[in-house]
């Protein structure tokens, strides 16, 4: 089954790319290709000039669900992903220190996401791939986690965020692309030339939003 038809694009280092598109358009497949969990039937994925042949420490993936191991405490869930000496700092930055001995089923959705993010950071990745990890949460928690992810990006990572929410993309990303329904093609590719933190009510923000929205509405109509 062809999920992604012709997506020919690059992501620059340090960029925060948001990938928008209707559900089931192959956004996730695109992310999984970059992560090395799937292999392209044609074409290739290059990372720093080298073809991607499988998962790698330099590309961390944060899944849509937290996917923590139910039998490990938060602390151990994070520790399994790399050098255990780094766990304390990550627990601290993610505000998880008091939950370190909790099991995943004892965590709220937001806390579980934080643990999942911390685990993804354990390998000191250059690229963080985010598969709508926060869109299923309620608004307040979502905002919080958006901030968390953004702080991670500002440390010098490259981020690729798959989402179906325009607002989320525009609040976080430096560049937005819109994919068509399956098989996916790039319908829109543009920078978001705005400073952080972004003001949702500002005129330039609204202008970009209107721009992208036009493309998105074309998809639904």
């Amino acid at each position: 089954m062809e999920a992604v038809a012709s997506v020919d694009m690059g992501v620059a280092e340090g960029e925060f790319l948001a990938v928008l598109g209707p559900s089931g358009c192959g956004k996730t497949t695109l992310l999984r290709l970059i992560a090395g969990l799937e292999h392209p039937t044609s074409g290739q994925i290059l990372f720093r000039g080298q073809p991607v042949r499988g998962p790698g420490r330099e590309r961390a993936l944060m899944f849509q669900e937290p996917r923590l191991f139910p039998w490990l405490t938060v602390e151990k869930n994070i520790a399994v992903a790399g050098d255990p000496a780094k766990v304390d700092v990550l627990l601290e930055t993610m505000g998880l220190t008091s939950f370190r001995h909790s099991y995943p089923h004892e965590l709220s959705g937001g806390m579980a996401r934080r643990a999942s993010l911390a685990r993804a950071l354990m390998s000191d990745p250059d690229v963080m791939l985010l598969d709508e990890p926060i869109s299923s949460l309620d608004l307040a928690v979502r905002r919080e986690l958006q901030g968390e992810v953004h702080r991670v990006w500002q440390r010098g990572l490259t981020c690729v965020l798959v989402t179906h929410e325009l607002e989320e993309a525009l609040v976080m990303a430096t560049r937005v692309i819109v994919l068509s329904p399956r098989p996916a093609k790039v319908l829109y590719d543009g920078r978001v030339p705005l400073d952080f933190p972004r003001n949702r009510r500002s005129e330039p923000y609204q202008a970009v939003k209107a721009d992208v929205n036009k493309v998105l509405e074309g998809l639904h109509g």
């Binding site: 992560a35 969990l37 499988g54 998962p55 790698g56 420490r57 961390a60 993936l61 899944f63 669900e65 996917r67 191991f69 039998w71 490990l72 399994v80 992903a81 685990r119 390998s123």
Partner: peptide
């Protein structure tokens, strides 16, 4: 999905056994 996590984290066979399969 947990097997995928193990792939992303590049678990060895031993780690798969101890961290995923046994528990």
């Amino acid at each position: 999905p947990l097997w995928e996590v193990s792939r992303v984290l590049e678990f060895s066979t031993l780690r798969n056994l101890l961290l995923l399969v046994l528990p």
